[in-house]
Simulated assay, not measured.
Amino acid sequence: MADRNALAEFLRTRRNRLRPSDVGLPDGSNRRLPGLRRQEVAQLAGISVDYYIRIEQARGAKPSRQVLTALARAMMMTADERDYLFRMGGEHPPTVAGPDRTVPRSVRIMLDTLGSPAYVVDASYEILAWNRSAIPFIGDLDATPQHERNMVRWMFSQPTDHPRLSEPDTLNFLRSTVADLRVAYARYPGNPELARLITELLGTAPHFAAMWNSHDVEVRRAHHKRIDHPDLGVVEFECQVLHVADTDQRMIVYCATPGTRTAEVFRDLASLTAEPR
């Protein structure tokens, strides 16, 4: 349901926070008040000044999706601001075409400076970036095409009689991953790559099909992991999931308890510092 008064107030505050130079207009010297004028917003959005004034005064017809989209673009709103604008206007926020795969520079710096194995995945579990310490666990993916770097595909590529698929911890991990993937499937309806991945796994991985058909929905959270690594031996750690703001990406960090053998292993791996991929 639209909240005309909240919509009007929100537009006024956004308009007053923008400078003309922010949107490519001259600042001028005869402005008595900060922010954009109503006619400037209307011009940038491609609507009439009278119509925009009525919206800001909570009068007239409810703005259409096209008008809300134009206003969000004209005022350079963030994704969160745009979604709020749509909701106050009585509309569902626009859907996003697909998971964001551009890793922020600051996140790459974090990968390079962390003393633990870490990597970044998008909402469909494509591995986008990783540090040197993570290579013993996920492999060196430089020579692997991007579309073959999917964690979910790897996890369900094992034969159905693989011993690990009967371990409670492994099954819980797989269930939470599939439940999180269903969240992404709802968030990006019609995304062809995500749809292809799910269709493929439904046809090739019975365990995936059974978990998918349970319709569990759960955003991925931290979990405990124990791995008998062929080169590193047994390591135990907390697999922490850090959500990267505005990208729907996750940084997965392996956190060892201080003073344990695993912590020593991670320190040794960190000494092989290299640029993150």
Rank of each mutant, 00 (worst) to 15 (best):
R108S: 03
M88P: 04
R132D: 02
P93S: 12
R31W: 12
V103D: 07
E56W: 06
L85M: 11
R59Y: 00
A72C: 06
D50K: 01
L71G: 08
A42I: 04
D83A: 11
A118T: 07
E91V: 10
E40Y: 01
A45Y: 09
I55Y: 02
G115Y: 09
A79S: 15
G60F: 00
G35L: 11
A123C: 04
I47F: 05
L114D: 02
R108H: 03
R65W: 01
Y84R: 07
N30Y: 15
L36N: 10
H92E: 15
S116P: 05
D100L: 14
L71E: 07
D112A: 13
Y51F: 04
S48N: 00
T69M: 15
R31S: 07
D100I: 09
E81R: 07
T78P: 14
S124Q: 15
S124K: 04
L111I: 05
V96T: 14
L114N: 02
S64K: 09
N30C: 10
L71Q: 06
K62H: 09
L114H: 01
P117N: 05
A118C: 06
R132K: 10
V120C: 05
G89R: 01
S29G: 13
T102N: 05
S124R: 14
E91I: 08
R101W: 01
A74H: 09
Q39W: 09
Y84L: 12
A58E: 01
R38C: 03
R108L: 13
S29C: 13
M88Y: 12
Y84C: 10
A42K: 08
G46L: 08
S29A: 15
G28A: 02
A61T: 08
S64V: 00
L85F: 08
Y125T: 13
E91K: 01
R87I: 12
G115T: 08
M110D: 12
A61W: 01
V120N: 08
S48Y: 10
R37D: 11
